[in-house]
Computed example of a mutant assay.
Amino acid sequence: MSAKEFDRMFDDGEDISEYLDFATARHLNLEPKRVNIDFPSWVVQGLDDEAKRLGVTRQSLVKLWIAEKLEAHRHTK
């Protein structure tokens, strides 16, 4: 099948699932990208305390808080 035919089927709302390999499919913009951030020790201690209180890792807490802030910011635009 050509890309043109595939695009036409998709645009027409036809079922294209038989032509997709879901085992290798990826969500765009959801692939992790590593960043390094330096924090003062008091910030790291605060993050660790809150992460422990919630029963999550420091990394999970940071990702959650940043995602929440970005989502709130997006809704205020």
Rank of each mutant, 00 (worst) to 15 (best):
M1I: 09
M1W: 02
S2R: 07
S2N: 13
K4E: 15
K4Y: 06
F6A: 06
F6H: 03
R8H: 07
R8N: 06
R8A: 08
M9A: 13
M9S: 04
F10C: 10
F10G: 05
D11K: 15
D11T: 09
D12F: 09
G13K: 07
E14R: 14
E14T: 02
E14M: 11
E14N: 09
S17C: 02
S17I: 01
Y19N: 07
L20C: 13
D21S: 10
F22P: 00
T24E: 14
H27R: 15
L28F: 06
L28W: 03
E31C: 00
E31A: 10
E31T: 12
P32L: 00
V35G: 00
N36I: 08
D38M: 12
P40W: 06
S41M: 06
S41N: 07
W42V: 10
V43W: 02
V44R: 05
V44M: 10
V44N: 04
Q45G: 01
Q45F: 03
G46S: 06
L47G: 01
D49R: 14
E50P: 00
E50K: 13
A51E: 03
A51N: 03
K52H: 11
K52P: 00
R53C: 03
R53K: 15
R53T: 10
R53V: 04
L54K: 15
L54V: 02
L54H: 08
G55K: 10
V56K: 12
T57K: 13
T57S: 15
R58M: 10
Q59A: 15
Q59G: 08
S60A: 15
V62E: 02
K63N: 13
L64Y: 11
L64N: 11
W65S: 12
W65N: 05
W65Y: 11
W65R: 15
A67S: 14
E68M: 10
L70P: 05
A72S: 11
A72E: 11
R74H: 08
R74T: 02
R74L: 10
H75L: 07
H75S: 06
T76V: 05
T76R: 07
